[in-house]
Simulated scan of single mutants.
Amino acid sequence: MNEKMRFHIPTIESTADASLQARLRHKIDHKTKPLGALGALETLALQLGLVQRSESPVLQQPQMVVFAADHGIAAEGVSAFPQAVTVQMVGNMLAGGAAINVFARQHGFAMQVVDAGVAAELPAHPCLLPRKIALGTKNLCNEPAMSRAEAQAALAAGMHVVQALPGNVVALGEMGIANTSPAALLLARLTGATIEDATGRGTGLDDAQLLHKQGVLTRALARHPATQPPDAVAELAALGGFEIAMMSGAMLQAASDRRLVLVDGFIAGAAALIAQALAPHVRDYLVFCHRSAETGHRLLLAHMQAKPLLELDLRLGEGTGALLAWPLVQSAANFLNEMASFDSAGVSGKESA
């Protein structure tokens, strides 16, 4: 690993600022509405202001980054789709035909696809960033998914991808057949959840296939004992995926840059678990956009004390849930900046008792 790509945890400042929070709260509370009437949008507006250190946050040049990689554990039959679908779907994204392309065009997001570790050599494309660590991870039922050096290289690559992006909003998504398995394993290891509770149907497993997947993951978790003292990079190397690692690095860099991070579903949530374990203040910058249909996602969100913006029973990945939530993020900024106050509108406020 060259010096430029060496991983180090960047400095991430807490967004806690009692004075600014009080000013934002006053501004929100004195809009022409009953106190708290905009519900979760008010919480989101407060977060936006704290992230940008401003009473008038502005959302600029939003970026969509999809990290793609393959997983050796796919050989254990844990997915309803063959591994070849990863490279096929990357091709579909680069051709502009995937769901995430549709939503990126709809909402004005610039989009890039990152080859984090697809198990094939991909032809050059203007929207493809070649950052391949290896041709997929190893089968973690038999050995660590990656070496520690590979995990660190993937984290560093995710950081460098974000460093090169303009704007102050980054949405993160992924593509990788079998990647709900490493996500479930990381959830179980980092939160203490059981494999049964952490493991879902992924791309559509039936009951028998789900039981098989749970058995495979139980065996895999036992194959890699927990690190003592806890070491998030070691757990990522043993149980994770290259796209998960790169998303974690991307979150760390974005938070260090004071950018807002739109977190998609279960896989991106697993990356957030790793990022938070490495740098707790990263949590301040994350907007959890939806709760997916994947079983473990509810547990993951509860562990991170996150209330998602949407619940649409999505289980596609790609970053689709992040972009579907984007209008809510825009609305939070817009009401904070544009909605009249009681004083400016000449509207009477609530009378005191």
Rank of each mutant, 00 (worst) to 15 (best):
155 L>S: 13
100 I>G: 05
244 I>S: 02
22 A>Q: 11
168 N>P: 10
214 Q>I: 01
265 G>C: 04
181 S>N: 08
312 L>I: 13
166 P>V: 07
340 A>K: 02
69 A>R: 07
340 A>Y: 00
94 L>N: 01
235 E>A: 12
257 D>R: 13
179 N>M: 03
273 L>P: 02
328 L>P: 03
1 M>S: 14
167 G>W: 06
217 L>T: 14
159 M>C: 15
319 G>Q: 10
101 N>S: 15
274 I>S: 04
267 I>F: 10
30 H>D: 03
299 L>S: 07
49 G>Y: 08
199 T>L: 01
318 E>H: 14
287 V>R: 12
118 V>G: 01
92 N>F: 14
127 C>V: 01
85 V>G: 09
125 H>S: 08
110 A>K: 05
165 L>D: 07
43 T>D: 15
149 A>V: 11
333 A>P: 11
131 R>D: 10
96 G>I: 09
240 G>P: 11
108 G>W: 07
41 L>M: 07
176 G>S: 05
103 F>Q: 12
30 H>S: 04
102 V>E: 10
149 A>W: 04
256 S>A: 15
342 F>V: 01
93 M>Y: 06
31 K>S: 10
37 A>Q: 12
249 G>N: 00
11 T>F: 12
89 M>Y: 07
221 L>A: 02
185 L>N: 11
274 I>A: 01
185 L>R: 14
48 L>R: 11
238 A>W: 00
187 L>M: 09
274 I>V: 15
95 A>I: 08
24 L>F: 01
101 N>T: 09
113 V>A: 10
146 M>V: 07
119 A>R: 10
291 R>Q: 14
100 I>R: 10
10 P>E: 10
67 F>S: 00
279 A>V: 04
340 A>V: 03
217 L>W: 06
341 S>Y: 00
47 Q>E: 04
141 C>E: 09
261 V>A: 04
283 R>G: 09
124 A>K: 11
255 A>F: 01
241 G>K: 05
207 D>P: 00
296 G>Y: 01
89 M>A: 02
269 G>V: 00
124 A>N: 09
12 I>A: 07
7 F>C: 08
196 E>M: 01
64 M>G: 09
120 A>R: 05
75 A>T: 15
12 I>D: 07
331 S>H: 15
31 K>L: 14
89 M>N: 11
38 L>R: 14
174 E>V: 12
219 R>H: 14
248 S>Y: 03
59 L>C: 12
47 Q>A: 05
36 G>M: 14
219 R>Q: 15
91 G>S: 14
179 N>G: 09
138 K>T: 04
332 A>Q: 11
10 P>C: 00
139 N>T: 02
35 L>I: 11
26 H>C: 00
7 F>T: 07
254 A>E: 06
35 L>Q: 11
7 F>S: 08
92 N>M: 15
194 T>C: 10
239 L>G: 01
321 G>R: 08
324 L>M: 13
8 H>L: 09
335 F>P: 06
11 T>P: 10
283 R>P: 00
32 T>K: 05
181 S>T: 15
342 F>T: 01
217 L>P: 12
128 L>T: 14
346 G>Y: 03
205 L>K: 01
74 A>L: 04
220 A>F: 05
129 L>G: 04
136 G>A: 11
71 H>A: 08
352 S>M: 11
301 L>W: 03
56 S>L: 05
190 L>S: 13
288 F>Y: 15
